[in-house]
């Protein structure tokens, strides 16, 4: 949803036409997630449907300007003043791959981890090199770009840390004889609980301490 709110926040600065919004979004996010014009117009249609923007004037070149409404302005304010909550249950390709790999017979899990770590480190090295080559920011646009690159760097680092952690954890589990692959079964799962419930439960436990 951040594209929708980002466009709205830009429109809060003044009326814009579609292509202009695309340019504004790009230069404010370091051109790292380029949007196509189709996405922009789709989003504008939905914003208009929801009463957050309204079509305004058309200039000589035929550009249709969109203008933010009061409700749209309120939406921007509320976006900026509340945290972005990432869904705890959002699918993570790598976590799923590793979790599945652990249950399969004949898979060398430390090799799986090592291959991934090599890939993640490669990403991290490339990002670092790119950032280093660009030097100190010289404009607000540069700064936006660096912020975004840093966020990618920290995300890659977190991935490597998680791999290190998993490797150590699996080594301990293996030493304790817990690493038996899972057989196919017809029984319903007993131990799984939804993440949401787990979080609530932990919060209760923490609250009662």
């Amino acid at each position: 949803m951040s594209v929708r709110q980002s466009l709205l926040a830009i429109l809060d600065q003044g009326p814009c036409y579609g292509y202009q919004l695309r340019t504004e979004f790009d230069r404010r996010t370091g051109s790292i997630w380029p949007l196509n014009v189709g996405q922009i117009y789709n989003t504008l249609d939905r914003l208009e449907r929801d009463g957050l923007v309204a079509k305004g004037d058309t200039d000589e070149q035929g550009h249709v300007y969109y203008q933010i409404t009061d409700a749209g302005h309120d939406e921007v304010t509320s976006w900026l003043s509340s945290p972005v909550v990432r869904s705890a249950a959002a699918r993570d390709e790598l976590a799923i791959k590793l979790a599945i790999a652990v249950t399969l017979p004949g898979v060398d899990i430390s090799a799986v981890i090592q291959v991934q770590r090599r890939g993640s480190l490669r990403t991290l090295q490339d990002l670092t090199k790119t950032k280093n080559a660009s030097g100190e920011p010289e404009s607000a646009g540069d700064l936006a770009w660096q912020l975004v690159v840093d966020s990618l760097i920290f995300a890659a680092e977190a991935e490597v840390r998680w791999l290190d952690h998993s490797e150590a954890r699996l080594a301990r589990a293996s030493a304790a004889g817990l690493m038996a692959p899972m057989q196919l079964t017809l029984e319903p799962p007993k131990r799984g609980r939804p993440v949401r419930a787990a979080v609530d439960n932990d919060a209760q436990v923490a609250g009662s301490l």
Binding site: G30, S31, I32, P34, Q114, R122, D126, T130
Partner: peptide
């Protein structure tokens, strides 16, 4: 030494103007 990560030439991971 169990592994060595050599970085040769970086591919650009980032779309947009800034590539090296």
């Amino acid at each position: 030494i169990v592994d060595e990560n050599v970085r040769d030439h970086p591919e650009s991971l980032l779309a947009g103007r800034r590539t090296i």
